[in-house]
């Protein structure tokens, strides 16, 4: 008989480690046509970080993300980056990009200040223009300012910056400190059906609420969460690397190492909870790895809710679940017998 169950799991996850140096750097160059070029050492593998970094530079400069040309992952031309690891790119590299863009912008502001007769503190960059905050009609095209900065003032609008997350050293007495720059939080709920005669689990639905700070690109963040849940489902129910006695992998292929297919994936509902991180670029934190952390415990709790067995050894295969159900039934019979 198929038995329904629901489980819930919450997690926190640290972003921007500080136990070792964790710097990222960026160079931003504003071009004479009002576009910008961004140099970053970080690596795009599909997570969308170059899009997000381009958005951050664009936001700081008041231009559109399409106008930012991102050059990445080639340390012959770009700065070194600690890596596309630890869910740090938006937070750490994003901050370096924001600071570099801010430096280029401050040069543009100096030049625009003379052109408009407005103090630099009174200026803002928006809509491809530099304009007065109080009298927005006092404005000049950003491209025009960039040209003037280059060929009249001799101050090319360039910025370069590094960001290394702020640390508070651990107090040897109390053990207190700040090992990470910030934390993200999430809760996921899994709805499953467990067949108590075969031990098979079907995940019917996962609802995921994630706080990642102020989300810079919601579609990409959702994609990361959905993908993380797929990995979490695989890890919970089917994925396992098997080794032989010599340490060789027994299942180095997708016939025997199973990952979820389109048919294994349930309905996923993603709720992006907006918050603001005071250190993150425009309030953002990070989203990569934390996405799969609550998936497994939520599914295992749902299995417990459905058939009353706790599986502590992943993956929770049908075989293990069935054995646990049998074990539980035997224990119950024994108890009845001894009563």
């Amino acid at each position: 008989m198929k038995r329904p169950g629901r489980g819930i799991a919450c997690m926190w996850y640290p972003i921007g480690f500080t136990v070792a140096a964790n710097p990222s750097s960026a160079v931003v160059k504003v071009n004479e046509d009002g576009t910008a070029t961004l140099l970053t050492g970080t690596v795009e593998v599909g997570q969308g970080s170059l899009t997000v970094l381009g958005q951050i530079a664009a936001q700081e400069l008041g231009i559109s993300a399409d106008d930012v040309h991102v050059v990445s992952a080639d340390t012959d031309t770009t700065p070194m980056d600690t890596g596309a690891i630890a869910s740090r790119t938006t937070f750490v590299t994003g901050n370096a990009v924001r600071l570099a863009a801010a430096e280029a912008k401050s040069i543009l502001f100096e030049v625009a200040s003379e052109m408009l007769g407005v103090e630099t503190e009174e200026l803002e960059a928006a809509d491809h223009k530099i304009r007065s905050k109080t009298f927005p009609d006092k404005q000049v095209a950003l491209a025009e300012v960039a040209v003037r900065a280059q060929i009249v003032r001799g101050r090319p609008p360039l910025g370069s910056a590094s960001f290394n997350p702020p640390t508070v050293a651990m107090d040897p007495e109390t053990g207190q400190g700040k090992p990470f720059a910030t934390y993200v939080y999430a809760t996921q709920i899994a709805e499953v059906e467990v067949d108590d005669e075969t031990g098979e689990v079907e995940v019917l639905r996962i609802c995921a609420a994630h706080d990642s700070g102020t989300t810079i690109n919601p579609a990409l963040a959702e994609g990361q969460i959905e993908g993380g849940i797929a990995m979490g489902i695989g890890m919970a129910l089917e994925e396992e690397i098997l080794f032989d006695a010599e340490g060789g992998q027994v299942n180095p292929n997708l016939t025997n190492y199973l990952i979820p297919t389109s048919l294994d994936m349930p309905k996923i509902e993603v709720d992006i909870v907006q918050s603001y991180d005071p250190v993150g670029p425009f309030g953002a934190k990070g989203v990569g790895e934390p996405t799969l952390v609550p998936t497994m415990p939520a599914i295992l709790n749902a299995i417990y809710d459905a058939v009353g067995v706790r599986i502590a050894d992943l993956p929770a295969t049908a075989e293990k679940i069935l054995m646990a159900i049998k074990e539980k039934e035997r224990a119950e019979v024994k108890q009845l017998g001894s009563a």
Binding site: G46, A219, E222, G223, E226, G227, G228, I229, A230, M231, L254, I259, P260, T261, S262, L263, M265, I268
Partner: peptide, 16 residues
């Protein structure tokens, strides 16, 4: 979903 069942994806969860 049946038509895509032979196409594995490691990144997306197939949702989008």
């Amino acid at each position: 979903r049946e038509a895509l069942a032979g196409n594995l994806c490691r990144c997306t969860g197939y949702t989008k």
